[in-house]
Nucleic acid binder design. Structure first.
Ligand SMILES: [Mn+2]
Ligand SMILES: [Mn+2]
Ligand SMILES: [Zn+2]
Ligand SMILES: [Zn+2]
Lengths: 145, 145
DNA sequence: TCTTAAATAAGAATTATTCCTATATAACAT
DNA sequence: ATGTTATATAGGAATAATTCTTATTTAAGA
């Protein structure tokens, strides 16, 4: 994704185009595995060694508010972020920190149909995400993302 | 659940029976809404004002290791815990911190069948949990759990 | 080029959680 | 019942992730 496509994402969301935001946006796209703020920091500082960590948190929060990215739920004590906004679910590996996107339209259809019939009293469903827990048969060792 | 039932849970898991562990176990059962360590602290200190927060974290971690409780994934920066170990899913309210258990055997059956056919390459599924996001039509205001 | 509201850098502060260690105690053996 | 010992706890310090504060910089529009 080139510079003008990245700026478009920002200006489409009424955000000022700054080098920091572009760098964070690019990092989120390159780092496939739902990076943490720290992982984003490591990545962007290759090119912007002075980019403040506080700024990264600001930008991530702004992107969340604008719906450019989402937070990913984990059972660790740090947050991870997801720039893939198309409908998908997640495969969580038991043995490492890897979280993979899982796309399955047939499944989405199945769930949609199921919850059309099966109404949950007093609750208004907006979306359903699957956490698929398990392990990769061949999983790569991985540190904090 | 009475005292001897609580002690049984501990001794069945080869854990020493201490007043602190009993108190935390009881708190987890009384506080239905997937309490945080802090919520457990507030609850147990009604009866044990000196019970150390570090001890609560120790106990929660021990219970997790023994499979007495589980961590609940949220997109907040603190952990929540779940003593309900029967198979269930979660309803996450958009507008407050409430997380409700959702039991649905028909759905579990449906998913089981679906993923018997639909094998995910290189991934070994252990369990599937639904995060059902939405809002209660009549939702109670709620602070940090 | 000028203006200004908004964004950033740098570091302090806060919060959740973990670590450390002296003391206390549950479980078991005598 | 009492003594022994490995383990658990209290209390406080340390750590790590995140948020806050404020002076400075800058993007965007006039
Ligand atoms: Mn994803
Ligand atoms: Mn639950
Ligand atoms: Zn793995
Ligand atoms: Zn609610």
């Amino acid at each position: 994704m080139n510079y003008s496509e990245l700026t478009k994402i920002l200006s489409d969301n009424d955000l000022k185009v700054t080098p920091q935001r572009i760098a964070v946006l690019k990092a989120l796209m390159e780092l496939k595995d739902h990076p943490s703020a720290d992982a984003v920091k490591e990545y962007v500082r290759k090119n912007y060694p002075n980019l403040a960590l506080g700024t990264i948190y600001n930008i991530l929060e702004t992107f969340c508010k604008e719906g450019i990215i989402r937070k990913v739920k984990t059972d660790k004590d740090f947050m991870r972020y997801d720039i893939e906004m198309h409908n998908h679910h997640h495969l969580y590996c038991d043995e490492c920190e890897y979280i993979e996107n899982y796309y399955d339209e047939e499944l989405d259809e199945l769930l949609l149909n199921y919850f059309e019939k099966r109404v949950i009293p007093n609750f208004n469903i907006k979306e359903i995400k699957l956490q698929i827990n398990g392990s990769y048969k061949d999983h790569k060792p991985s540190k904090k993302q």
